[in-house]
C-alpha cells in the first residue's frame, strides 16, 4: 500500500460519512454539514493527487481554492434558504417541505 492510497481511503471514508448524512438525516442543517464533508473529501483527493500523483502543486491549490470558493457560496445560499424555511414553517425538517410536489 503506497501513501497515495492512504489518502484515497481517507477521502472515501469522508465521502461515505457525508453520503450517509445526506441520506439519513432529516434536519436541513445536518444535510448541509454532510454536503460540506463531501466537498472536503473531494478537496483532500485533489491535494493527495497533487502530492503523490501527476497533478502540479500550484495547479492543485488553484483548483482547490476554486472549490472552497464555490463551497462558501453554496453554504451562504443554503443557510439563507434554511433561515427562510424556518421563518415560514417554524421547522427545518426536510420531510415536511413537500409543497413543490403539489
Amino acid at each position: 500500500m503506497n501513501e497515495l492510497s492512504v489518502y484515497i481511503i481517507a477521502s472515501v471514508i469522508f465521502l461515505a460519512i457525508g453520503v450517509y448524512g445526506i441520506i439519513a438525516k432529516r434536519n436541513a442543517i445536518r444535510i448541509l454539514f454532510a454536503i460540506e464533508i463531501v466537498i472536503n473529501a473531494a478537496n483532500l483527493n485533489i491535494a493527495a493527487f497533487a502530492r503523490y500523483g501527476s497533478l502540479a502543486l500550484s495547479q492543485a491549490q488553484a483548483i482547490a481554492i476554486f472549490v472552497i470558493g464555490i463551497a462558501a457560496a453554496e453554504a451562504a445560499v443554503g443557510l439563507a434558504i434554511i433561515i427562510q424555511a424556518f421563518r415560514l414553517r417554524g421547522k427545518i425538517n426536510v420531510d415536511e417541505m413537500n409543497e413543490m410536489k403539489e
Binding site: 489518502y7 478537496n43 472552497i68
Partner: peptide, 23 residues
Amino acid sequence: YLGLTYLAIFQVAVYVGAIAVLI
C-alpha cells in the same frame, strides 16, 4: 502535512473562520 501550505491557510480562513461561524 501534504505540503500545500497556502491551501491549508485558505481552508482555515474560509472554512473555520467563515463557514463554521456562519453555520
